[in-house]
Design a protein around this nucleic acid. Structure first.
Length: 279
DNA sequence: ACGGATTCCTGATGGC
DNA sequence: TGCCATCAGGAATCCG
């Protein structure tokens, strides 16, 4: 599922192919994916140039000219790919719900179409006009980015979070970017139990958690993310799933002690951990 | 104030 | 083999 490393990968690949391109036309094939006002959705976007593509936690932000923005959350199965406009394709590609026709005005009439694809249709697209983005972002109340936050910030945020460490890592208002995969991977690498009350983290434990999180998130970005189920970035699948220690490995030996990894539910999320190594 | 269930969705998987 | 139930999960929302 797209978490920080997957979203970061997509953002880099999207930036390379869309930055300085102009949105000339927008089509939406499945209306519920548009979560902002329907009437203004394409009008905020059409005719604007894409100045930057950035990541905010697990959100993807296209910043356009004239203080207009396209903000996307991929949820479970959202992804992007490039192709030609639906009419020229003879219809919509499977599970594609929005199409953005892009032209590069700096060169000869080059054009490409960016498709938003989402099998389970959980993802949402929002367009913002001038002055509208920041109030929305503020309402999300996102914590510091999991990749940028310091060890001290990890400790401050986590020791103020209610509930278990697993719940705290998944809570985007505590730290932004973790999802189920990297929460489990970070916890096992730091030898910390998902059940552990976040408030009880010691300085050393918070430091270890931070160290492992940085190592894992950066390594995962180098691998262009984890491809489990059907995640793909525009340039294809990632490979970090080959480095997973816990996620998807229930019943297999713990990499540290060799005893079987356990799978349980914590706050409704599948959680794989070692009952012996993670304290 | 917390955990838990529910909702949104579809495809993959497992059991019989 | 075929069919139905279950599961997967990000995050909002509601419920106890």
């Amino acid at each position: 599922m797209p978490e920080l490393p997957e979203v970061e990968t997509m953002v880099r690949e999207l930036a390379a192919k869309t930055q300085a391109w102009r949105i000339s036309e927008v089509l939406v094939h499945y209306a519920p994916i548009v979560a902002s006002a329907w009437e203004s959705f394409s009008s905020w976007l059409v005719g604007q140039d894409i100045e930057a593509v950035t990541r905010i936690g697990k959100w993807i932000l296209f910043s356009l000219t004239e203080d207009r923005h396209l903000l996307i959350h991929l949820k479970m199965t959202g992804q992007f790919h490039f192709d030609v406009w639906p009419e020229e394709l003879g219809g919509w590609p499977p599970h594609c719900h929005a199409a953005f026709r892009l032209i590069n005005h700096a060169q000869e009439p080059l054009e490409r179409t960016l498709y938003y694809k989402d099998t389970r249709k959980f993802g949402r697209l929002r367009a913002f006009g001038p002055g509208q983005l920041n109030p929305f972002l503020a309402s999300l109340n996102l914590g510091p980015d999991a990749l940028i936050a310091t060890a001290q910030e990890y400790r401050q945020r986590l020791t103020q979070a209610p509930g278990s460490l697993k719940a705290a890592l998944l809570d985007q208002t505590v730290l932004a970017g973790f999802g189920n995969i990297y929460a489990d991977e970070t916890l096992i690498a730091a030898h910390l139990s998902p059940f552990r009350k976040a408030k009880t983290l010691t300085i050393d434990e918070a430091t270890a958690l931070h160290t492992q999180a940085q190592r894992i998130l950066n390594h995962a970005i180098e691998c262009r993310g984890s491809t489990v189920a059907n995640y793909q970035a525009p340039e294809g699948a990632g490979s970090y799933q080959n480095h997973h220690l816990a996620y998807g490995k229930a019943g297999q030996p713990c990499p540290f002690c060799g005893r079987a990894l356990n799978k349980i539910k914590v706050n409704g999320r599948g959680t794989v951990y070692c009952p012996f190594c993670q304290k």
